[in-house]
Amino acid sequence: MKVSVAVNGAARTDEVEPRLLLVHYLRDVVGLTGTNIGCDTSSCGACTVHVDGESVKSCTMLAVQADGAEITTIEGLASGGELHPMQEAFRQHHGLQCGYCTPGMVMAATSLLAENPSPTEAEVREGLEGNLCRCTGYHNIVKAVLAAAGAGR
């Protein structure tokens, strides 16, 4: 089955098995390994990417379902050697400990701000409920997202 997508702005077409999951397509076919696989059961959000601008768990979507879509992964956020403001905010506020959940957290957080540019702290926590940090480093993650929202105001 042919799938044509734009990944981080680059159009490409690949022949894939229908059962290939989007996360495996991104990691194994496209070669972008920044998107992590965590729980494998649609729970943890480590595999979060954007499909047409919205956060999606790429372990719960077939690559063929993304046909015609624009996909953004963590590798697509920085531009011209400059970190995306959300990445910069995670760095400034130490919004990570082991770092495993970070790509998914950053992608979920940027999608959240696209829908709600000025969230309250409670809205940030609610907006990230699909992402688990097993280091329990939520405090600084929430601080980072609020800082990124403030920077974008």
């Binding site: 649609s42 959000g45 979060t48 499909v51 919205e54 956060s55 999606v56 768990k57 719960t60 979507m61 979920a108 999608s111 959240l112 907006g127 409920e129 699909g130 992402n131």
Partner: peptide, 9 residues
């Protein structure tokens, strides 16, 4: 339902 990612799909 679920979480934001689930509600997007």
């Amino acid at each position: 339902v679920g979480d934001p990612q689930v509600r997007h799909r």
